Computed example of a mutant assay.
Amino acid sequence: MWMAGMAYGYVKGMLLVMAGVSVGVSLPYFVGSVFHAEIQRLLEKYPKEASILRLAGEGGWFHQFRTVTLIRISPLPYIMFNYAAWATNVRYTPYLLGTWVGMLPEVFIALYSGILIRSFAEATQDKRSLTTKQIIFNVVGFCASVGATIFIGIRTKKRLDRLRQEESML
């Protein structure tokens, strides 16, 4: 993602990365369908750990979309959810759209970081220094991006915990 930011900037980089994300999450989703029974047994073996994954497959389209989005923003390992999504009965459309929306903050920061690295590299190559205004803009922008990501991650974890508690009450 950094390389996409360095080479293509925001728009082309975003399109390229999101196309890669689409393929990268779709393949395990459909491979998971082949191993449905085995994944289902694993989820049953670890009910507490799998509760949030099972929660994603419940409810209607919007509930699935919202839960997938929250899972993508949270620190839950992506690869685990990619394979388990089929076994939890998450439909493909909310899975893919929720993945796109949930990964946007991460992709944006990675692209921004790549663009920032490129600007520093160009300044070094041209043997010129960045202006004070550019340095301040880059540092503040980077800190704001990291701060927003941390804030969103904390809020997402709290929301997922609340959803898990609501599920256990039912």
Rank of each mutant, 00 (worst) to 15 (best):
G24F: 04
A37C: 01
F62A: 10
Y83A: 06
V23Y: 03
V68N: 06
A19P: 04
S26D: 03
L43Y: 02
A37N: 14
F35V: 06
M18H: 11
G59P: 03
Y10I: 12
Y8R: 08
F30Y: 15
I71V: 14
M18D: 01
L43F: 01
E38R: 08
A50I: 05
E49Y: 07
P75T: 10
V17H: 03
A84V: 12
F81W: 08
G59L: 02
F30V: 10
K45G: 02
E44S: 14
Q64W: 00
G13W: 04
L16G: 15
L70C: 12
G57T: 10
G13L: 03
I73S: 02
Y10H: 09
A37P: 02
F35T: 00
S33M: 14
I79R: 06
L43I: 07
Q40T: 13
V17I: 13
Y10F: 15
G32E: 00
E49S: 12
M14I: 11
M18Q: 13
L16S: 09
G57R: 07
I73A: 06
I71E: 07
L76I: 13
A84S: 14
A84W: 08
V11M: 13
F62T: 10
L42K: 05
G20K: 06
G24H: 05
R66H: 11
V21C: 05
T67K: 04
I73M: 15
G60E: 03
L43R: 02
L16R: 07
T67I: 15
V34N: 05
G9W: 07
Y10W: 15
E49Q: 15
R66Y: 14
M80Q: 08
